Every structure is written in C-alpha cells, then in structure tokens.
Simulated assay, not measured.
Amino acid sequence: MIKTSASLLMAAALAVPTLAMSDTLELPSDATVDAQVIDVLTLTAQAPEQDDLVIHPVAGGDASHTLPEYCVVVGNARLDGDRIRLTTKALTCIETDGSESEIYSGEISAAAYGADGDFGIPACQDGECRLTPQQTFQLRLASDLAIEQQDNPAAEINAQRRQGEGAAAPTPAETPDPVGD
C-alpha cells in the first residue's frame, strides 16, 4: 500500500510543471500553487486581520504549478464577510539538487482562492474564521513571477571544502612533552 501511494505521489509530482534549477525562478501570471498556513490562523470581528502570515507551498493537489519543496511565502489575511482574503507579498525558496542548492528571494503578488474558485477562502463558522495547517488552498499569481538566483555563501564554502578534501591534511606542530624528558 505504501509503495503504491508513493508511486502515485511520484507520478503526480512528475505530471505537474515544476521549476528546474536555473538562474531565475519563474511562474506565469495566473499560475496556481497549492499552499497551507504554517500555524493556525483565526480571524474574528474583534481581530479581523493578521499581517506577516507564514505560508508554505505543498505538492499533490490540483494546482497548475509547484514551487520548490523548501519555500516560505509571507502574506496578509483579512476577514471579509464569511471569507478569509489572503494575499502574498514575499517568498524565499531553496531549490536543491543533490549537494547543490540555489536560493531565490523576492516579491510575489498572489491571492488565495477557495475550491469554489472565488477570491478568498470560505473558512468561517459561528463568527470565527479559521485555517489550520491541514487545510490546502490555492494561491493564484496576479502577475508573472521572475526572481533571480541569490548568492549562496554556504554553497561557496562547501565548494571550497570539497576542493580541500583531496589535499593532505596539515601536520600539527610539534609540541614539547609536558613531562619534560
């Protein structure tokens, strides 16, 4: 059963357009990405908004595109009637390929849509609107996304270390015998 589920997930992941490692992270306008909040979001009439909400993309849904596995999106949430209106402003992603990694960080303009296709997420009941990390929603890009790859100091340090692995280790300096022969 686990093997079958893993095979289905792999097939689904391969069927969805994804981003290959390149100098630019790109998605077209109107692309959709499945996402979830990191922590429980609760909005009420007394607390109708939350800024700097942390969201992460997830794979395996009905979205048109995926973002790298290691990615966070920052956005704002506002109560609007019986819907949560969620918009995004920034993202940071790390794309990995073996020991290589690329970092992308920049602005993103996207909004959350419910399964009904309408703007905002219908997540309200008895005067409280709530999103949990288990609930998936779609972010739809308002404009093209094109973020240039950032410098990755850790990758540069690792490359230097790999070059040094083949060299002989330095010999420790001889130290006097503490007993004093």
Rank of each mutant, 00 (worst) to 15 (best):
L43A: 11
Q46I: 04
P48S: 08
E49P: 00
E49W: 06
D51C: 01
L53W: 04
V54M: 12
V58K: 03
A59R: 12
A59Y: 08
D62P: 00
A63N: 03
A63I: 01
A63T: 01
T66M: 01
L67V: 03
L67Y: 01
Y70Q: 06
C71R: 01
V72I: 10
V72C: 04
V73D: 00
V73Y: 02
V74A: 06
G75N: 07
R78F: 10
D82N: 15
R83V: 07
T87W: 00
T92H: 06
C93I: 04
D97I: 01
G98T: 04
S99A: 14
S99P: 00
E100G: 02
E102D: 06
Y104A: 04
Y104V: 05
S105C: 07
S105L: 04
A111Y: 09
A111Q: 14
A112T: 07
D116H: 05
F119C: 02
P122D: 13
P122G: 08
G127C: 10
E128C: 03
P133V: 11
P133N: 10
Q134I: 12
F137N: 00
F137S: 00
Q138R: 15
Q138H: 14
L139W: 00
L139F: 01
R140Q: 15
S143M: 14
L145I: 07
L145T: 03
I147K: 05
E148H: 09
Q150A: 15
Q150S: 14
D151T: 13
N152C: 05
P153W: 08
P153K: 06
I157L: 15
A159M: 10
A159G: 12
A159P: 03
Q160I: 03
A167Y: 12
A168Q: 14
P170N: 11
P172I: 05
E174I: 12
T175P: 00
